[in-house]
Nucleic acid binder design. Structure first.
Lengths: 351, 351
DNA sequence: AACGTTCCCGGGAACGTTTCCGTTGATTTA
DNA sequence: TAAATCAACGGAAACGTTCCCGGGAACGTT
């Protein structure tokens, strides 16, 4: 070879070099029983010498498997999903799979496009955390499932689809968080709820209501406030509450950003935390430890969630486990200064 | 499976249905000039009816192109890289490319593994932000380049490799940040530098030194402190400094986490910010706005960086632009309360 | 001695495209 | 009028694998 584009060495090159057939080489490389030890070793040696690497496209063409699994998450800029992805990558790459990541930007239309893209790219399976309007794509989820590509939902699931789901017990954790606020003696507790059509919103709201009712508190329409899911949403609503004289004693927010936004607004308006108002968030982020006082929040086992979901999709691909379980992982409430006058500030945890 | 595996419709199906050859179909679909308008339309219509989608593996096998580009970043959990990735995805998906994301976890060995993996997966090009020990993989970078796969470096580059690089002017921005601290009247300014062998560390240090010398300050070994790149590193070193009586007037940190860690330690030990000590970071993160007081930091045009790098790799793949430019993007110093007694708190910017 | 088995291995089709190399009839050119 | 160009299409090889279908030794088994 003078210069020319370096041709990749193929199975044929090995066959030619050893004077055997390509079938034999193929079998030797895939550890087939019908190959004599000596020839197998010969092949392996030749392959190493020639620096052989199998062509995944050729393999995929005949086996109809890409060894790629598609991922669709709402966004990447909050470290929440990246932490899950880290766990996924670990298990998937060990199993010889590779990940195609797409983001839906909280838009069900882009999610649709992404799913179609993944399907056309012939991924072996799909891992998805839906947008807040997951029901709008329910038809597509089913279509994909029917076409033979398995799907595993995690974190944000679509309840009406019959497929494996990896989640935490949102209702229970919300209940525990609110219970904690109640035990700390806060009277007027409000819930800043997330987007209406997100399953998580309903589940966490349910937990809030249960804890409130259990302690005999009245819950009226002013106890639950619709917000978005970002820091500004929390700030805006908190400011509004205070200014119209409806200052709550404690706020349980749908997630950390909303809690932090609300907290910032409260501080700006001169409230002391947690004496005047307490705060608790959900899905502990790094920011929970950076903000002052540190924020009480529900920590999720993110990388574990990724690993479990990954393992689940692999099993589905390999045909074992035809059931579609809802796997519920353990979560934990980390209590910090934002909701308790004295407590140790727990370090951030991946759980 | 009763309903049989739904066979994907192929080019042959279209050909059969229309009674023409596969070559014609292929040409019609790829808009070849040697196809009559009417037959093209016929093919397009049939393709739509049969819900045809080309098989990327078959295409890849013959064209030797995967339309996939590989990405290798140190980590995903700080929103820094995800923001860049968002920009990349926009440009790349528009051009019909798909991204394979890998993370090196700051380890040059995993980076090596990832690059090998990407190469074996036949990506058309590689976008990489190196680990801190990039020089250790310089041989591999060159090997990949020689094998015909283009590489574009961004953010963290390997200076000795002759390939396109997309960066900001780290030295200049560090200079501007330090200059700002000097103008605010701070006397004893120290630099918390990042990992020794990272190019960025040297560049930012250079800017620090230039600003210091230009204003006639003495710079001794106590002016530059080696730290890691995480929040704990900053906290630890700041505490050490204060406790051994070497409290600085101002700290210019290698990045935001280190600055935030240092700031937290200073507050804990009773220092007022920015009166007693000022802080400035680099690569503005969301945390810069969450911490109190808000942190002065250098904002980078992250999504733009992603777009530019993506455009660059596409051009490389298509053979145009044989040069290997170093593209320098504009950055900006956002001055906030951590370094100036009165100032407006700028909103977080993607730049 | 005839017949199974078991052990290895080769031939070649198939996977779904692209693309090179014709071929044909129609039109233009010398 | 013969030759050359052209527009529009078909045939078939190629890409790098896997895998089905054999088939010939070597080895027992009756």
């Amino acid at each position: 070879m003078p210069e020319t584009t370096k041709k990749h060495t193929t199975i044929k090159d090995i066959a030619k070099k050893l004077g055997i057939s390509t079938s034999t080489v193929s079998r030797a490389l895939s550890d087939s029983w019908e190959i004599k030890k000596e020839t197998r070793e010969l092949v392996l040696k030749a392959a190493a010498e020639l620096n052989y690497h199998p062509n995944p496209m050729a393999i995929g063409l005949v086996t109809k498997r890409s060894h790629t699994i598609g991922l669709c998450v709402p966004e990447l800029v909050h470290s929440f999903f990246p932490k899950i992805i880290t766990g996924m990558q670990r298990t998937l790459s060990e199993a010889g799979y590779t990940i195609l990541i797409t983001t839906s930007d909280e838009s069900y239309e882009t999610e649709r496009k992404n799913l179609l893209l993944l399907k056309q790219n012939l991924v072996d399976g799909i891992l998805i955390s839906t947008t807040s309007e997951s029901h709008r794509n329910a038809d597509l989820y089913n279509e994909i499932l029917n076409s033979g590509t398995p799907i595993v939902f995690f974190n944000r699931v679509c309840s009406k689809i019959d497929a494996p789901k990896v989640v935490i017990d949102d209702t229970r954790m919300a209940y525990i968080a609110v219970k904690h606020l109640i035990e700390q003696g806060y009277e007027k507790i409000v819930h800043m709820a997330g987007p209406r059509d997100l399953d998580l919103t309903k589940l966490r709201l349910e937990g809030f209501l249960k804890a409130m009712k259990e302690s005999g508190r009245t819950v009226d329409e002013s106890s639950v406030i619709d917000t978005g899911m970002f820091i500004d949403d929390g700030a805006r609503e908190m400011e509004r509450l205070i200014k119209c004289g409806a200052k709550p004693d404690a706020v349980f927010a749908f997630n950390d950003p909303v809690a932090i936004g609300a907290m910032k607004a409260a501080k700006k308006l001169g409230l002391r935390i947690p004496q005047d108002t307490a705060f608790a968030g959900f899905s502990e982020s790094k920011s929970a430890l950076i903000v002052e006082p540190a924020l009480t929040s529900v920590a999720q086992p993110l990388s574990q969630m990724g690993e479990v979901a990954a393992r689940c999709i692999i099993d589905k691909i390999n045909g074992r486990d035809a059931s579609n379980p809802a796997i519920v992982l353990d979560a934990r409430l980390n209590i910090r200064d934002s909701s308790a006058v004295r407590c140790q500030n727990l370090m951030p945890t991946d759980m």
